[in-house]
Design a protein around this nucleic acid. Structure first.
Lengths: 343, 343
DNA sequence: ATGAAAGCGCTAACAC
DNA sequence: GTGTTAGCGCTTTCAT
């Protein structure tokens, strides 16, 4: 098997203590001894055993990342940024996909891993934010997304209501009046959908447009095919009152809607203007390119890790839970670009 | 702090041994004792400490997953499947993004983690497969992708040459003769690009078409913008000899090419037929939908985990390294669909 | 500047 | 069926 600290000590003719000091660069060791120890380390190919180190230190250097789905572009991009940022801080990331399942979300929180991690970043779908916060205790947790833990834990999110309002207002400013929304999720008490719907409605009302229930389409999940299906429902309306604009609550939904619009022979943006939410990579290359709300994902990742670091390294600072709002901006592209002005 | 096995033992009035047995369900324990212990566990909210368990058992229950980039759809989808499959086998996954950087790839192999994992799944970009295999020793490793470790470790991949040949042959069968390729990476000695180029050329030759250097476009990375740039180069050819078909080595490249073709006013598939590789979700909803080579990703994930499990749990079986070829199929969609027949 | 030794929480070999 | 005990490899007080 592989060699231990004791082996190194024996080989270098010093005590374990000294080897430990060399490895951790902690106390002062004479240059001569250090060199001898280093040689022994190299010769033996010694690697400190993390399990033992953690057992002693009571800290693992590992954080958990619980995310609904890795394959969706938004979460894929976010996970990538979070992993990189964690690495910068010398943390290892264990990742888990919850698929929005309550049991799966609880699994990590109840420490199924057994103090296997120092902290957790979670984007809950099924669980109430408050349940997440209380269940996790005393594990430091940062929540990502719309559901507020009401001061029981740190949270990082964009202002969804404002962002949805902006997106809708943008469509209205083009002169569109029959503005539909795709992405409600009444079966989930999902803050995301609710907040975006709220922003959508408030923008309509401010413009003097009465929200129309038929134009608010629900979806089961947030993927392209759900968007395509919802778009089909909108176009199949028998009252001939089809929308001239759509605000989709995610880019994936918007791309699905775009797909269906093409299939039905609609011209985008002339016949139908479309706005999405997330600014995933695809949206910059779709046909037409997609106007979308762009949250600052990098900042989400950085702030989330910063919060976690503060909780882990300074638990004694009983700082009240933070609620960080990350900036976003509306990126105007082809799907509402030139040609989108209503006639 | 949290309670230990010893605390539980004291509270239940039994020895540590018995508690351990209850927790692990190992030896037989009288129903009465078990119940008493269970109560103590519940009351104290006891959770076994993983670090200690690992230290004893010499096994961590953790596997590593080293992937170039989480944000790219192909790797995002694959990572999702791998994580789910690992979970099914009760493994925890620590994830790392290498960004195709040699140092980053080596980091995990040299056990920077310090036996922090029982095995590793890696999709190398920078490192030679053989270096990966030898550096990792004695850590069990499964390689994903095109570079062969020459029997030094297990590998799971699709037959790239055959797949690229099929894709190209499909374009030729439509009557196209000016078939370009996008995605060569001469600066990387990347098996992927080389093998796909080989399949592309062999298909051309078999059809009596002489491969033309100008039609083989190199890219820096494999993303949409690289595909768009390469497409622009092809269309900017001053000899008027522009291609009537493109085989892109990844779907992302193909989608970028599609984007540029639209921008230049080309009709796809009429003016230009396009085939990609990977079958990412976007390709089913792009405009037009993308014909692509679809590797069986789920099977890649399952087989990779199976290999790893065999090495970890039965290291004594000195089974020679496996080289598993995963099935793929050509999925024909709009980008080479009706209308693609050459005139 | 270095050594000796205790002990982190757990499992398993050995008793009974 | 259950108790006792010896470490797993490391860090860290207490000595020297």
């Amino acid at each position: 098997m592989s060699s231990s600290l004791k082996d190194v000590a024996a080989r270098a003719g010093v005590s374990a203590r000294t080897v430990s000091n060399v490895v951790n660069g902690s106390a002062r060791v004479s240059t001569q001894t250090r060199q001898r120890v280093q040689e022994a380390i190299d010769e033996l190919g010694y690697r400190p055993n993390l399990a033992a180190r953690n057992l002693r230190a009571g800290r693992t250097g590992v954080i958990g990342l619980a995310i609904p789905e890795l394959h969706s572009p938004y979460f894929g991009e976010l996970a990538g940024l979070l992993v990189d940022e964690a690495r910068r801080r010398s943390w290892t990331v264990i990742i888990d996909q919850t698929h929005g399942d309550a049991e799966a979300e609880r699994r990590l929180l109840t420490g199924d891993g057994g103090r296997a991690m120092d902290g957790l970043i979670i984007s809950p779908w099924a669980l109430e934010a408050q349940e997440v916060a209380t269940t996790a205790r005393p594990l430091p947790v940062v929540l990502l997304g719309e559901r507020s833990p009401q001061g029981l834990a740190d949270r990082v999110a964009v202002d969804n209501v404002a962002a949805a309002d902006e997106a809708t207002t943008h469509l209205l400013a083009l002169g569109r009046r029959r503005v539909a929304a795709i992405g409600l999720q009444p079966h989930l008490h999902n803050g995301t959908a609710e907040q975006r719907a709220e922003g959508y409605r408030s923008a309509l009302r401010r413009a003097g447009v009465t929200p129309k229930p038929r134009w608010e389409r629900s979806v089961t999940s947030l993927h392209r095919q759900d968007g395509a299906r919802a778009m089909a429902e909108l176009l199949d309306g028998d009252d001939g009152d089809t929308p001239d604009a759509v605000f989709a609550f995610t880019d994936e939904l918007a791309l699905g809607a775009l797909h269906m619009a093409h299939a039905r022979g609609l011209r985008v943006p002339d016949d139908l203007a479309v706005v999405g939410f997330d600014d995933i990579e695809d949206s910059r290359f779709s046909h037409p390119t997609l106007t979308t709300v762009s949250p600052d994902k990098r900042q989400i990742a950085e702030r989330a890790l910063q919060c976690l670091a503060d909780r882990i390294y300074s638990p004694e600072n009983e700082v009240p839970a933070l609620d960080l709002t990350i900036p976003h901006r509306l990126v105007v592209r082809g799907s509402t670009g030139p040609g989108a002005q209503a006639h």
